[in-house]
Design a protein around this nucleic acid. Structure first.
Length: 916
DNA sequence: CGGATAGCTAC
DNA sequence: GTCAGTAGCTATCCG
């Protein structure tokens, strides 16, 4: 009962704990390593809990019994340990693990929570040391606070601790010998603690979590704008924290990080991991391919990636995949086996065996010039990736997005990059964007609109003869192997197994037929002729059932229709606010505004740069003349001396260097990061304090390197003329650029991109052709010895759709439409709460929302004053609006299917909304 | 209608 | 090194 069980995050932490226990003795301590995230036992299913290895181990080690109340000391004596102490990394995932352990105890034995059964062991996250003196900080804000109150902080050596592994065993011993300081109790302070823990972990409290996180993000933003420091939970005097404090100040950090790493940015469509990969690739500027495993290492180093590399490697693989349903434009090239549509990319080879390289298209999407106008982040004084890149089209729509965070998840389908170029061009011209449909590269099926935010995606099926059909395309994200196992094989087995899965269907049509017929399988046999890029099933069906199947619709029978929806497109906007978007056009418009300002920035930057370059050339030419005419003597003189003379002669310090520095400073100031950059410089300087002055002089002198450092051979009339000519060219460029608008620059980029895209797609098409031919050859040689080209061609034809097949045109499923109308209706009437975008950012919704609404209004030619409702910034209003919009959109888009007018109910809701 | 599951970045 | 299990949310499938 006086014993404490230490739960550690992973095995390496266990080692640390064990070595730390050396100083306090192992008698009263046990150590048990947790392997990753603990099961969330709240409203989980029984079977999973019973079978969970970790949970069972914990029960056994602690001697806990379900349903037992640990109210008295006698009850406590039945336990093998009187306390549980969690020792997790001092990072957000560590907080999550602490939370999950607390959740486990709280859910089953609330009485133990009230008895302070759970504790934690915290370790420093930053240490500052100076001649024997050592300061430990248990949170970053505490460290920053100290830094701001300590003038000579620069004289300290600063070390960051990432994970428990950073600590040495000597340090572990230090921590454990000062138990009082590192041991923190979780204190129960009443009912609110129960509510807090439940809110954080119950699957039913998603909406509450949205509110919780939204509020937290708002508060953080408010503190930022007021220049206040972040809150922190632990300082040197902290002895206990309440569960509410833990949830609201520590766990919330994990939840927020979880969103940040799982939900991409609207501007570039990247999650931080992906952005770091691109950053590292740009920085390395490799001309040759690199091994994925090696690239991951480089990314981790160059961009301060602190998580497991396995995760990073799958991110890289994901960026390079190019099978149907993955990327519309893969930014990295897949060199080796990166996975195919056979298994949805799960069939990729090990990262040790496969190579990658930046695709030529990538730089045309992310122009190099923009690097000068992006806001780069810093971590521990290392310049890492920007907050976001700024591609020339909204990449989040090109490759789509998929992510699961806390309280929110996101799902954005893919769109056609050419449609996006077209829409951007319209926006540049001040026109409205056209509605877009999801689109997948090399997808041969069909995508149709159901309603404003739902689409149906059909595969391809054709009739070969009375009892044979061929399936040559599956809906997007239905993988060949899975389709075979989960659809075709069951259709064949139904009769054999005796339990007819299609009984219901058969009943409908074959009423009165003999039971024998019902038992017959729909599919009697099927053959496969796939390649890793194409699909072809040739399916034999029972002849007498063919007609019935055709009436029902082959797409439906063979499950060749899936739904793509745009109902949960959640993204971080340019300002870093989480926001839910209702349409790709809305995303386009918001992207457009951000990108536009970046083009203006870029133009300004380039203008200054060119002018600086021209000035530099002028100076150089003048310098050469002066040198030739003997006005400057450099031989046998000190550099400082020469520079002094140059200054006297009114030569400018390197104009290009000056300009760049100016820009950097301006940018940092605008983004409020000035202290970071200043800190970077300062820290470099303070390393060698006494040399500081020297260094300054050196930088000063180096400002003239562009003159004094010129090669002797360049000191000639010839060279001078060349420089002057170059200067003229630069000035010409300045004139040129001056005449261009941001729109012109953008237009140029778009044109270049389209050219690159064409080239890339031609290459891909050639590869696809080759692939099919190879498949033919292989099939030919496998079966019989190949005899001439004819055979090969015949086999190649086998993998392609048959030429004389009768294509079945998918029929818009009326059932489906009705189904979704039904789903949508109660939703609007109930006025479902979605605080996601609500509180998030009122001012923005108003500003941008108005824009979008305006465009929607024009586009759908509706005069009804929907907009006023929306400006109260409640998405309920949006939802209603969308319904209206969808109907009018159907009017426009789906000519053959007359839309059902259902304005009833909408008015009612609107009235409700305006009231509320 | 409820339970199971895919999808993805992290442990 | 590989495989397997966990979180977190939404939508769909299945019984």
């Amino acid at each position: 009962m006086q014993c404490t069980l230490i739960l550690t995050e992973g095995d390496s932490a266990k080692t640390l704990a064990v070595s730390g226990l050396g100083v306090v003795g192992r008698d009263k301590y046990g150590v048990f390593p947790l392997r990753g995230k603990l099961l969330n036992v709240r409203d989980g299913n029984l079977k999973q809990i019973q079978e969970n290895v970790e949970i069972n181990a914990l029960l056994k080690i602690l001697g806990l019994q379900y349903k037992k109340k640990y109210d008295t000391d006698d009850d406590m004596k039945t336990l093998r340990y009187g306390k549980v102490m969690i020792m997790a990394d001092q990072d957000q995932d560590g907080s999550h693990i602490k939370g999950l352990v607390i959740n486990f105890i709280h859910h089953n034995w609330p009485s133990l929570i009230q008895r302070s059964f759970v504790e934690e062991f915290i370790t420093p996250i930053v240490k500052a040391s100076k001649s024997g003196q050592e300061l430990s900080f248990f949170s970053i804000p505490e460290y920053i606070e100290w830094r701001e109150n300590t003038d000579n902080w620069k004289t300290y050596k600063i070390k960051y601790y990432k994970g428990l592994g950073t600590s040495t065993s000597k340090e572990a011993k230090e921590y454990f010998s000062d138990m009082a300081r590192h041991r923190i109790k979780f204190r129960y302070s009443g009912n609110e603690d129960d509510t807090a823990v439940e809110m954080a972990f119950s699957k039913k409290k998603i909406e509450e979590r949205k509110d919780w996180l939204t509020k937290w993000m708002e508060e953080k933003r408010a503190r930022r704008t007021q220049g206040l420091a972040d809150e922190y939970l632990y300082n040197k005097d902290t002895k206990a924290v309440s569960y509410t404090e833990f949830v609201n100040k520590e766990l919330v950090l994990f939840s927020n990080t979880d969103n940040e790493r799982s939900i991409p940015s609207l501007v570039d469509g990247f999650k931080p991991g992906q952005r770091k990969v691109l950053f590292a690739c740009f920085k390395r500027a490799d001309k040759r391919e690199v091994k994925v495993a090696q690239l991951a290492g480089a990314v981790a180093e160059l961009s301060a990636y602190h998580h497991g590399e396995q995760s990073l490697m799958s991110t890289i693989i994901n960026l390079a995949q190019d099978y149907v349903g993955s990327n519309n434009i893969n930014l990295l090239l897949p060199i080796g086996q990166f996975g195919t549509r056979l298994q949805g990319g799960k069939d990729s080879a090990s990262p040790r065996y496969i190579f990658t390289q930046v695709s030529p298209v990538t730089r045309s999407l992310f122009p190099l010039h923009d690097d000068n106008v992006l806001r780069f982040l810093f971590e521990e004084n290392q310049r890492i990736e920007p907050e976001w890149y700024c591609p020339i089209i909204p990449m989040v729509l090109v490759n789509g997005a998929l992510g699961i965070g806390t309280a929110w998840s996101t799902n954005v389908p893919n769109y056609n990059p050419r449609d996006l170029v077209e829409n951007i061009r319209r926006l540049i011209k001040g026109e409205q964007p056209k509605p877009m449909m999801p689109w997948y590269k090399h997808f041969r099926g069909e995508i149709r609109r159901i309603d404003s935010r739902r689409f149906v995606c059909y595969g391809e099926v054709a009739k070969l003869n009375e009892d044979t059909i061929e399936i040559t395309e599956l809906p997007v994200k239905v993988w060949t192997q899975e389709y075979k196992e989960k659809v075709l094989e069951p259709l064949m087995e139904t009769a054999a197994a005796g339990k007819d899965k299609d009984k219901d269907k058969d009943k409908d049509k074959d009423k009165g037929e003999t039971s024998k017929k019902q038992r017959e399988p729909l599919v009697t046999d099927f053959k496969e002729y796939h390649t890793d890029t194409t699909v072809r099933f040739v399916v034999k069906v029972a002849k007498e059932k063919m007609r019935a199947l055709e009436i029902e619709g082959l797409h439906k029978v063979f499950k060749l229709n899936t739904v793509i929806n745009t109902t949960s497109m959640v993204l971080f906007d340019a300002a870093g606010c989480l926001k839910k978007y209702n349409s790709p056009e809305e995303i386009c418009v918001e992207f457009f505004e951000t990108r536009k300002t970046k083009y203006i920035d870029r133009k300004n930057f380039l203008m200054g740069m060119l002018k600086a370059q021209a000035l530099r050339l002028t100076n150089q030419a003048r310098f050469i003349i002066a040198k030739i005419q003997g006005e400057i003597h450099m031989e046998n003189r000190r550099k400082a001396n020469i520079v002094e003379q140059l200054i006297k002669m009114k030569f400018d310090p390197d104009p290009v260097k000056r300009w760049k520095e100016e820009q950097r400073k301006k940018e940092l100031k605008e983004s409020g990061e000035i202290d970071l950059e200043g800190e970077a410089e300062a820290e470099q300087e303070d390393e060698e304090d006494e040399k500081k002055a020297d260094k300054k002089l050196a930088t000063h002198l180096s400002d003239y390197d562009y003159l004094v450092g010129m090669a002797l051979i360049r000191v000639s009339e010839e060279e001078k003329d060349k420089l002057l000519a170059e200067k003229e060219t630069k000035l010409q460029e300045v004139n040129n650029l001056e005449g261009k608008t941001w729109g012109d620059l953008w237009e140029e980029d778009l044109t270049r991109f389209l050219e690159e895209l064409k080239k890339q797609e031609d290459r891909e098409l050639a590869d696809l052709d080759l692939n099919i031919k190879k498949a033919g050859k292989k099939a030919g040689s496998d079966d019989k010895p190949a005899k001439g080209k004819k055979k090969t061609a015949a086999f190649a034809a086998e993998v392609l759709p048959a030429k004389d097949a009768e294509r079945i045109v998918p029929e818009m499923d009326n059932e489906m439409k009705i189904k979704y109308e039904k789903i949508d209706k109660p939703k609007t009437e109930k006025v479902k709460k979605e605080p996601g975008e609500k509180a998030e950012k009122k001012k923005r919704t108003k500003k941008e929302g108005a824009d979008i609404k305006k465009f929607m209004k024009k586009e759908i030619k509706k005069e009804e004053p929907l907009d006023s409702d929306i400006s109260i910034s409640d998405e309920d209003a949006d939802e209603v609006n969308t319904d209206d919009e969808f109907e009018s959109e159907l009017d426009r888009m789906d000519d053959d299917a007359p839309p059902k007018r259902q304005t009833r109910g909408i008015k009612k809701v609107r009235a409700f909304v305006s009231k509320g």
